[in-house]
Design a protein around this nucleic acid. Sequence first.
DNA 1: CTGAATCCGATCTGATACTG
DNA 2: CAGTATCAGATCGGATTCAG
Lengths: 140, 140
Amino acid sequence: MDTSSQSGSDKQTESARSFLPQPSNGICARLGDKWTIEVIWRLSLAEKRRLRFSDLKRKTDGITQRMLTLTLRNLERDGFVKRHYFPEVPPRVEYELTGLGAGILASLQGLNLWIRDNLPRIEESRQAYDDTGEQGNRFR
Amino acid sequence: MDTSSQSGSDKQTESARSFLPQPSNGICARLGDKWTIEVIWRLSLAEKRRLRFSDLKRKTDGITQRMLTLTLRNLERDGFVKRHYFPEVPPRVEYELTGLGAGILASLQGLNLWIRDNLPRIEESRQAYDDTGEQGNRFR
DNA sequence: CTGAATCCGATCTGATACTG
DNA sequence: CAGTATCAGATCGGATTCAG
Protein backbone atom coordinates (compact mmCIF):
# COMPACT_ATOMS: atom_id res chain seq x y z
CA MET A 1 0.00 0.00 0.00
CA ASP A 2 2.86 2.36 0.72
CA THR A 3 4.67 3.04 -2.51
CA SER A 4 4.79 6.76 -2.06
CA SER A 5 8.46 7.15 -1.18
CA GLN A 6 11.33 6.59 -3.59
CA SER A 7 11.71 9.69 -5.65
CA GLY A 8 14.61 9.61 -8.03
CA SER A 9 14.44 5.94 -8.94
CA ASP A 10 13.63 5.30 -12.57
CA LYS A 11 12.62 1.70 -11.87
CA GLN A 12 9.68 2.85 -9.88
CA THR A 13 7.59 2.66 -13.01
CA GLU A 14 7.61 -1.12 -12.75
CA SER A 15 5.22 -1.38 -9.85
CA ALA A 16 3.18 1.57 -10.97
CA ARG A 17 2.18 -0.09 -14.21
CA SER A 18 -0.22 -2.32 -12.36
CA PHE A 19 -2.44 0.67 -11.75
CA LEU A 20 -5.52 1.16 -13.84
CA PRO A 21 -5.55 4.30 -15.91
CA GLN A 22 -9.19 4.30 -16.87
CA PRO A 23 -11.83 6.19 -14.97
CA SER A 24 -13.09 2.61 -14.65
CA ASN A 25 -16.27 2.86 -16.63
CA GLY A 26 -17.51 5.82 -14.72
CA ILE A 27 -17.35 4.22 -11.28
CA CYS A 28 -15.12 6.95 -9.90
CA ALA A 29 -17.31 9.59 -11.46
CA ARG A 30 -20.35 8.01 -9.85
CA LEU A 31 -18.65 7.94 -6.47
CA GLY A 32 -17.81 11.57 -6.97
CA ASP A 33 -21.46 12.47 -7.25
CA LYS A 34 -22.63 14.79 -4.58
CA TRP A 35 -24.62 12.24 -2.59
CA THR A 36 -23.56 8.76 -3.66
CA ILE A 37 -20.96 8.00 -1.02
CA GLU A 38 -23.00 9.38 1.83
CA VAL A 39 -26.05 7.36 0.79
CA ILE A 40 -24.04 4.15 0.64
CA TRP A 41 -22.54 5.01 3.96
CA ARG A 42 -25.90 5.67 5.61
CA LEU A 43 -27.18 2.36 4.38
CA SER A 44 -24.11 0.55 5.66
CA LEU A 45 -24.74 1.88 9.15
CA ALA A 46 -28.36 0.83 9.22
CA GLU A 47 -29.78 -2.28 10.74
CA LYS A 48 -29.53 -5.09 8.22
CA ARG A 49 -28.09 -2.46 5.88
CA ARG A 50 -31.65 -1.42 5.12
CA LEU A 51 -33.54 1.83 5.30
CA ARG A 52 -36.77 3.05 3.90
CA PHE A 53 -36.81 6.03 1.63
CA SER A 54 -38.00 8.55 4.19
CA ASP A 55 -35.46 7.44 6.79
CA LEU A 56 -32.67 7.68 4.32
CA LYS A 57 -33.84 11.14 3.37
CA ARG A 58 -33.95 12.26 6.99
CA LYS A 59 -30.50 10.92 7.78
CA THR A 60 -28.89 12.38 4.70
CA ASP A 61 -28.73 16.01 5.62
CA GLY A 62 -29.64 18.45 2.91
CA ILE A 63 -30.56 15.99 0.20
CA THR A 64 -33.70 16.67 -1.78
CA GLN A 65 -36.27 14.06 -2.62
CA ARG A 66 -35.37 14.29 -6.23
CA MET A 67 -31.64 13.78 -5.70
CA LEU A 68 -32.18 10.89 -3.33
CA THR A 69 -34.34 9.21 -5.93
CA LEU A 70 -31.78 9.74 -8.67
CA THR A 71 -28.90 8.60 -6.49
CA LEU A 72 -30.74 5.44 -5.50
CA ARG A 73 -31.67 4.68 -9.11
CA ASN A 74 -28.04 4.84 -10.14
CA LEU A 75 -26.94 2.69 -7.23
CA GLU A 76 -29.69 0.21 -8.00
CA ARG A 77 -28.67 0.04 -11.62
CA ASP A 78 -25.06 -0.68 -10.71
CA GLY A 79 -26.16 -3.39 -8.30
CA PHE A 80 -24.98 -1.61 -5.17
CA VAL A 81 -28.45 -1.29 -3.75
CA LYS A 82 -31.53 -3.50 -3.87
CA ARG A 83 -35.00 -2.00 -3.83
CA HIS A 84 -37.80 -3.64 -1.90
CA TYR A 85 -41.29 -2.40 -2.66
CA PHE A 86 -44.20 -3.16 -0.34
CA PRO A 87 -47.59 -2.41 -1.88
CA GLU A 88 -49.24 -1.11 1.26
CA VAL A 89 -51.10 2.09 2.05
CA PRO A 90 -49.23 4.25 2.41
CA PRO A 91 -46.59 2.58 0.27
CA ARG A 92 -43.33 1.52 1.84
CA VAL A 93 -40.04 1.09 0.05
CA GLU A 94 -36.85 -0.13 1.61
CA TYR A 95 -33.39 0.11 0.14
CA GLU A 96 -30.82 -2.47 1.03
CA LEU A 97 -27.09 -2.29 0.50
CA THR A 98 -25.96 -5.36 -1.43
CA GLY A 99 -22.73 -7.24 -0.92
CA LEU A 100 -21.38 -5.41 -3.89
CA GLY A 101 -22.27 -2.05 -2.39
CA ALA A 102 -20.75 -2.97 0.94
CA GLY A 103 -17.65 -4.17 -0.85
CA ILE A 104 -16.94 -0.92 -2.56
CA LEU A 105 -17.41 0.90 0.69
CA ALA A 106 -14.76 -1.29 2.28
CA SER A 107 -12.41 -0.67 -0.63
CA LEU A 108 -12.99 3.01 -0.20
CA GLN A 109 -11.76 3.00 3.36
CA GLY A 110 -8.09 3.02 2.47
CA LEU A 111 -8.57 6.08 0.36
CA ASN A 112 -10.68 7.76 3.00
CA LEU A 113 -8.11 7.16 5.69
CA TRP A 114 -5.49 8.68 3.44
CA ILE A 115 -7.69 11.69 2.83
CA ARG A 116 -8.37 12.10 6.52
CA ASP A 117 -4.64 12.03 7.25
CA ASN A 118 -3.62 14.35 4.45
CA LEU A 119 -6.45 16.81 4.29
CA PRO A 120 -4.63 19.38 6.45
CA ARG A 121 -1.74 19.43 4.01
CA ILE A 122 -4.09 19.72 1.07
CA GLU A 123 -5.92 22.63 2.62
CA GLU A 124 -2.64 24.34 3.42
CA SER A 125 -1.69 23.98 -0.20
CA ARG A 126 -4.99 25.44 -1.34
CA GLN A 127 -4.59 28.35 1.00
CA ALA A 128 -1.08 29.07 -0.21
CA TYR A 129 -2.15 28.75 -3.83
CA ASP A 130 -5.07 31.10 -3.43
CA ASP A 131 -2.99 33.64 -1.56
CA THR A 132 -0.01 33.87 -3.86
CA GLY A 133 -1.84 33.31 -7.10
CA GLU A 134 -4.25 36.21 -7.09
CA GLN A 135 -1.78 38.72 -8.45
CA GLY A 136 0.29 37.16 -11.23
CA ASN A 137 -0.16 35.13 -14.37
CA ARG A 138 1.24 31.71 -15.04
CA PHE A 139 4.54 32.86 -16.55
CA ARG A 140 6.87 32.95 -13.64
CA MET B 1 -19.30 14.12 12.02
CA ASP B 2 -22.13 12.09 13.43
CA THR B 3 -25.40 13.77 12.79
CA SER B 4 -28.13 11.18 12.91
CA SER B 5 -29.18 9.29 15.97
CA GLN B 6 -28.93 5.63 15.28
CA SER B 7 -31.95 3.42 15.47
CA GLY B 8 -30.36 0.01 15.55
CA SER B 9 -26.94 -1.18 16.62
CA ASP B 10 -25.69 -4.30 14.95
CA LYS B 11 -22.24 -5.70 15.34
CA GLN B 12 -21.49 -4.84 11.77
CA THR B 13 -22.00 -1.14 12.40
CA GLU B 14 -19.12 -1.10 14.80
CA SER B 15 -16.44 -1.42 12.18
CA ALA B 16 -18.33 0.69 9.73
CA ARG B 17 -18.31 3.72 11.97
CA SER B 18 -14.69 4.33 11.23
CA PHE B 19 -15.63 5.29 7.72
CA LEU B 20 -15.80 8.92 6.75
CA PRO B 21 -19.18 10.10 5.59
CA GLN B 22 -18.15 13.36 4.02
CA PRO B 23 -17.25 13.71 0.38
CA SER B 24 -14.00 14.75 2.05
CA ASN B 25 -13.91 18.36 1.01
CA GLY B 26 -14.42 17.58 -2.60
CA ILE B 27 -11.50 15.20 -2.98
CA CYS B 28 -13.64 12.38 -4.28
CA ALA B 29 -15.43 14.75 -6.61
CA ARG B 30 -12.10 15.96 -7.92
CA LEU B 31 -10.92 12.40 -8.50
CA GLY B 32 -14.15 11.78 -10.34
CA ASP B 33 -13.33 14.50 -12.83
CA LYS B 34 -12.99 13.27 -16.34
CA TRP B 35 -9.20 13.58 -16.55
CA THR B 36 -7.78 13.91 -13.04
CA ILE B 37 -6.92 10.29 -12.34
CA GLU B 38 -5.43 9.66 -15.73
CA VAL B 39 -3.24 12.74 -15.51
CA ILE B 40 -1.93 11.73 -12.09
CA TRP B 41 -1.32 8.26 -13.43
CA ARG B 42 0.56 9.48 -16.50
CA LEU B 43 2.81 11.56 -14.31
CA SER B 44 3.46 8.65 -11.99
CA LEU B 45 4.70 6.56 -14.88
CA ALA B 46 7.06 9.22 -16.17
CA GLU B 47 10.72 9.45 -15.47
CA LYS B 48 11.22 11.26 -12.19
CA ARG B 49 7.44 11.62 -12.16
CA ARG B 50 7.83 14.61 -14.45
CA LEU B 51 6.44 15.53 -17.82
CA ARG B 52 6.21 18.71 -19.78
CA PHE B 53 2.85 20.02 -20.82
CA SER B 54 2.99 18.86 -24.41
CA ASP B 55 4.13 15.36 -23.48
CA LEU B 56 1.37 15.04 -20.98
CA LYS B 57 -1.10 16.18 -23.57
CA ARG B 58 0.14 13.66 -26.10
CA LYS B 59 0.05 10.77 -23.66
CA THR B 60 -3.39 11.58 -22.38
CA ASP B 61 -5.52 10.51 -25.26
CA GLY B 62 -8.37 12.78 -26.19
CA ILE B 63 -7.74 15.55 -23.68
CA THR B 64 -7.97 19.11 -24.92
CA GLN B 65 -5.47 21.79 -24.12
CA ARG B 66 -8.03 23.59 -22.06
CA MET B 67 -8.96 20.58 -19.95
CA LEU B 68 -5.35 19.63 -19.35
CA THR B 69 -4.65 23.14 -18.14
CA LEU B 70 -7.64 23.15 -15.83
CA THR B 71 -6.90 19.69 -14.50
CA LEU B 72 -3.30 20.64 -13.78
CA ARG B 73 -4.35 23.87 -12.07
CA ASN B 74 -6.61 21.96 -9.72
CA LEU B 75 -3.96 19.38 -8.98
CA GLU B 76 -1.42 22.10 -8.37
CA ARG B 77 -3.77 23.91 -6.03
CA ASP B 78 -4.32 20.77 -3.99
CA GLY B 79 -0.57 20.15 -3.83
CA PHE B 80 -0.62 16.97 -5.88
CA VAL B 81 1.45 18.45 -8.65
CA LYS B 82 4.30 20.93 -8.74
CA ARG B 83 4.75 23.25 -11.68
CA HIS B 84 8.23 24.09 -12.97
CA TYR B 85 8.43 27.00 -15.36
CA PHE B 86 11.51 27.54 -17.51
CA PRO B 87 11.62 30.99 -19.14
CA GLU B 88 13.15 29.89 -22.41
CA VAL B 89 12.09 30.39 -26.00
CA PRO B 90 9.92 28.60 -26.66
CA PRO B 91 8.79 28.31 -23.07
CA ARG B 92 8.98 24.98 -21.34
CA VAL B 93 6.88 23.89 -18.40
CA GLU B 94 7.24 20.65 -16.54
CA TYR B 95 4.77 19.15 -14.14
CA GLU B 96 5.95 16.94 -11.35
CA LEU B 97 3.90 14.62 -9.22
CA THR B 98 4.53 15.44 -5.56
CA GLY B 99 4.73 12.95 -2.73
CA LEU B 100 1.18 13.86 -1.89
CA GLY B 101 0.03 13.15 -5.41
CA ALA B 102 1.84 9.83 -5.52
CA GLY B 103 0.36 8.97 -2.16
CA ILE B 104 -3.22 9.34 -3.23
CA LEU B 105 -2.51 7.26 -6.28
CA ALA B 106 -1.26 4.47 -4.07
CA SER B 107 -4.31 4.75 -1.85
CA LEU B 108 -6.44 4.52 -4.94
CA GLN B 109 -5.04 1.17 -5.93
CA GLY B 110 -7.16 -0.83 -3.53
CA LEU B 111 -10.28 0.70 -4.93
CA ASN B 112 -9.12 0.19 -8.47
CA LEU B 113 -8.38 -3.45 -7.91
CA TRP B 114 -11.82 -3.88 -6.48
CA ILE B 115 -13.37 -2.18 -9.48
CA ARG B 116 -11.35 -4.32 -11.85
CA ASP B 117 -12.53 -7.47 -10.10
CA ASN B 118 -16.16 -6.45 -9.82
CA LEU B 119 -16.77 -4.55 -13.02
CA PRO B 120 -18.23 -7.59 -14.79
CA ARG B 121 -20.86 -7.96 -12.10
CA ILE B 122 -21.64 -4.27 -12.21
CA GLU B 123 -22.10 -4.35 -15.95
CA GLU B 124 -24.32 -7.38 -15.70
CA SER B 125 -26.44 -5.50 -13.23
CA ARG B 126 -26.66 -2.51 -15.53
CA GLN B 127 -27.66 -4.71 -18.41
CA ALA B 128 -30.37 -6.42 -16.39
CA TYR B 129 -31.64 -3.11 -15.08
CA ASP B 130 -31.84 -1.56 -18.50
CA ASP B 131 -33.55 -4.61 -19.98
CA THR B 132 -36.28 -5.13 -17.42
CA GLY B 133 -36.86 -1.53 -16.55
CA GLU B 134 -37.87 -0.15 -19.89
CA GLN B 135 -41.52 -1.24 -19.61
CA GLY B 136 -42.80 -0.61 -16.11
CA ASN B 137 -42.89 2.13 -13.52
CA ARG B 138 -41.41 1.99 -10.04
CA PHE B 139 -44.48 0.63 -8.30
CA ARG B 140 -43.92 -3.08 -8.36
C1' DC C 1 5.10 25.87 -26.52
C1' DT C 2 2.02 27.08 -22.98
C1' DG C 3 -2.12 28.86 -21.70
C1' DA C 4 -5.83 32.36 -21.26
C1' DA C 5 -10.49 33.92 -23.11
C1' DT C 6 -14.81 33.17 -25.18
C1' DC C 7 -18.77 30.80 -26.84
C1' DC C 8 -21.89 26.88 -26.57
C1' DG C 9 -24.25 22.60 -25.72
C1' DA C 10 -24.75 19.04 -22.25
C1' DT C 11 -25.21 17.64 -17.72
C1' DC C 12 -25.96 18.37 -12.65
C1' DT C 13 -28.51 20.08 -8.87
C1' DG C 14 -32.19 22.38 -6.42
C1' DA C 15 -36.95 24.15 -5.99
C1' DT C 16 -41.55 23.39 -6.69
C1' DA C 17 -45.75 21.22 -7.87
C1' DC C 18 -48.31 17.18 -8.85
C1' DT C 19 -49.78 11.89 -8.53
C1' DG C 20 -50.91 6.99 -6.90
C1' DC D 1 -44.96 7.79 1.58
C1' DA D 2 -42.61 7.39 -2.54
C1' DG D 3 -42.01 9.01 -6.90
C1' DT D 4 -42.46 11.82 -11.22
C1' DA D 5 -42.41 16.18 -14.07
C1' DT D 6 -40.94 20.61 -15.06
C1' DC D 7 -38.23 24.69 -14.77
C1' DA D 8 -34.06 27.46 -13.77
C1' DG D 9 -29.34 28.31 -12.30
C1' DA D 10 -24.77 26.53 -12.01
C1' DT D 11 -21.07 23.90 -13.57
C1' DC D 12 -18.64 20.90 -16.94
C1' DG D 13 -16.33 19.87 -21.00
C1' DG D 14 -15.25 20.72 -25.98
C1' DA D 15 -14.04 23.82 -29.93
C1' DT D 16 -12.01 27.80 -31.31
C1' DT D 17 -9.41 31.89 -31.15
C1' DC D 18 -5.94 34.97 -29.39
C1' DA D 19 -1.45 36.03 -26.79
C1' DG D 20 3.24 35.95 -24.33
